[in-house]
Design a protein around this nucleic acid. Sequence first.
DNA 1: AGGAATGGATAGTGCTACTATCCAACCGGC
DNA 2: GCCGGTTGGATAGTAGCACTATCCATTCCT
Lengths: 209, 209
Amino acid sequence: MRVAALSRESGISVATIKYYIREGLLEPGTPTAPNQAEYGEEHLHRLRLVRALMEVGGLGVAAVRAVLDAIADPDLSFHDLLGVAHRALAPRPHPGPVPDDVVRARAEVDAFVQDLGWRVDAGHPARWALADALAALWRLGREYPAQVFQPYAEVADDLAAWELQTVPTGSRGEAVEGAVVGTVVFEAALVALRRLAQAHHSALRFADG
Amino acid sequence: MRVAALSRESGISVATIKYYIREGLLEPGTPTAPNQAEYGEEHLHRLRLVRALMEVGGLGVAAVRAVLDAIADPDLSFHDLLGVAHRALAPRPHPGPVPDDVVRARAEVDAFVQDLGWRVDAGHPARWALADALAALWRLGREYPAQVFQPYAEVADDLAAWELQTVPTGSRGEAVEGAVVGTVVFEAALVALRRLAQAHHSALRFADG
DNA sequence: AGGAATGGATAGTGCTACTATCCAACCGGC
DNA sequence: GCCGGTTGGATAGTAGCACTATCCATTCCT
């Protein structure tokens, strides 16, 4: 398979494929001549993985590269890999000092996570994301404690327990890709389902009829 | 309060405040002279709402404007407003025809939603988001039926039922803003909590110790 | 033989969220 | 009432990102 075929199969333009190769998201094909190279199924699969991470997961090129590098690194444990995926999904923090209320929110979130009995790295980006959400609520005049998140924490706990049971199957490569894909695309699915469920319950309560 | 004070209180540069006014995200201050205007608490609050939608919810300027317009529109029902928020949160679809597998995924998702007994608009953007997630799984060689989402649908249903019970309190303006804020920031919180719970359960299973 | 395709390099595009500059009116301390 | 700093309003410029277009010397394929 050469670029034209790869492009046709994947639905991605040749120019973009070249760009991904330049950016290190896709291996160059195996060269057969100074200006010819051959691509295989693995290139097609990789391309689909890249697009899934970008389109479904909303990752940027740099974040995709970080995830792919982590998948390729045989020294990383499953747990480490999940951390990389979580870091890639988190928006990059703004520069400058952390505002005061966010500092307080982080402390509250840390205490909340500890109360839940969860064992999570101190610097995990999702802690900060949760603190940002809490601080946003405060700024809008909703003076909630971190315990507002309790119901969400419970379902998240159930979900994650179930997910972690079912993930690791097959070879390392497969399991590791499965973990990333699971994290990213089932997150998108969960969010979509919450919105659908909200629409449903809102229709039950408020729509005419 | 004049711009400098508004800027200080909100932490947003004067230039950006002007930009938001130009873009219709913020009302101009009440003019006291040809080139002087006065801002109040409501401007500060609005600014914080805008930032929350952008930073926590990841909305762009156009999406924020759509949400704010919907909040301001007294003719929109609570249900309609939720729809606007959901549409604002959805990424805008790429141009061009819908790929074949996505068409099939949408059909599967529609059937799945119907089986759940959920009453949701046929064109709800979250249906498409869920179909995109399903199609992404297929493309990566995971030939799941839409029923893989069942566990997620159940927790989403529980969560949404509880959320819709607790949302509408206070005046229309408050309730309506609360609905939007709830949708957007608790979504971010849910996602963060799922990641934390995953990290926790992954640590339990795979980390040393 | 010769038109199309290729890899590799480099430059340009479109979009978004700002950011900078300018200007003529103002404000407020002296 | 003077003058440095601020304001609203207009216009133009910037940075980052994900591509996209062009060029060129080979190579493919019929």
